[in-house]
Design a protein around this nucleic acid. Sequence first.
DNA 1: ACATTATTTTAGTCTTGTCTAAAATAATAT
DNA 2: ATATTATTTTAGACAAGACTAAAATAATGT
Lengths: 218, 218
Amino acid sequence: MFTSSEENYLKAIYHLEIGVDKGVSTNAIAEKLVTKASSVTDMVKKLSEKELIIYKKYQGVSLTNFGKKIASNIVRKHRLWEVFLVEKLNFSWDEVHDVAEQLEHIKSPKLIQQLDLFLGFPTHDPHGDPIPDKDGNLKAIEKSLLSSLIKNESGICVGVNDSSKDFLQFLDKKGITLGKLITVLEKEDFDGSLFIQIDRKKLSISNKISNNLYIKKQ
Amino acid sequence: MFTSSEENYLKAIYHLEIGVDKGVSTNAIAEKLVTKASSVTDMVKKLSEKELIIYKKYQGVSLTNFGKKIASNIVRKHRLWEVFLVEKLNFSWDEVHDVAEQLEHIKSPKLIQQLDLFLGFPTHDPHGDPIPDKDGNLKAIEKSLLSSLIKNESGICVGVNDSSKDFLQFLDKKGITLGKLITVLEKEDFDGSLFIQIDRKKLSISNKISNNLYIKKQ
DNA sequence: ACATTATTTTAGTCTTGTCTAAAATAATAT
DNA sequence: ATATTATTTTAGACAAGACTAAAATAATGT
């Protein structure tokens, strides 16, 4: 149907256009895919020909409904594979991205349907990101940044905003994983750092951390 | 490391050089990969540069030890994925090939190691073909063609020589699956057809069928 | 409003892997 | 032994997807 390269562009645009009403810029896509703006312009023309995106010179791009369907399906596959890797093959959450990046391009509707069944129809991936259903719909959950909590509030850790290896390994080191209850014991006004309780441990975390951790308020 | 295309050439050569002492011909590779001889010549030069194969003009090719290692690893991955699809995702043995053909190119040593563990270190794929270990070694089992049995001999079905959809579906229809006990009740000399017993059923099968079915003599 | 800067596009090139058509070599038959 | 046929290789072309450098357009600052 589509090449891996085309799929990667669609996925990048899909992620970039979330919460933005303007078209996604050539440069933004180039940065996300670690390629050059000129390459993006080339590809964007092809995707436009195939009615996957709306493109007007110098105006940025946006996905058509068709493009959105294709893109969300790639994301669906990516996240289902991540669940598989963690749940069945004992990968840790910081190891799954690169492999899922390859697996998401495997073409077989039956494969994904059966994988979904095998995994028990998961709604979220190992980082707490929602898995689109076959029609691209996301199961939204109310989540807040940990940084938005005030003293004595608490919540369950439900996701991360930054899925980089470094950040995920940092969280592992601190014992912070999805499902854990976090309580804010103190909040420092001058730097936004938090003193939190998790399990029996108390620890201090910077604003940068709490800005990248989603919790569900209790 | 290597492109999917390179890997496909190595795999084709690997399969073609089994039981042959001469170099594998350009045409044979072209036929196997459904491509043109000229394309094969091009690729064969590249693989030769990379020391994966031995190639001399007009002489055909053969894998180096290095090439054999790479090739057997692709076959290993292909067959492990086939086991996964059948055992875990409820694919039937005639549905797995095309998907495994894609999955075999996923690059992640950990993925295969964990998959192997998850599947319980299988030694054979759903068609009875042996799965190479990390070093490319195959666990040989003594198997014979069903056509080699004589009247009143019997054996366990352990593999197929032809893995085409048509043949596999035919076997399904007749209730012939791996592990089944087959007894030869009659053998017709003039056309080699067999009258066999399998479970409580008796049926007649042509020489073409019995020439593509491996059994382990009892 | 216009000069400067940033972004985007165009033009031309490169690599990979394929193809066709023609030339070269090997195999086969008489 | 040589003519014929089959196989393989070469030469040149093409598409996809990337790149660089230069040109065009948009955005920004004073």
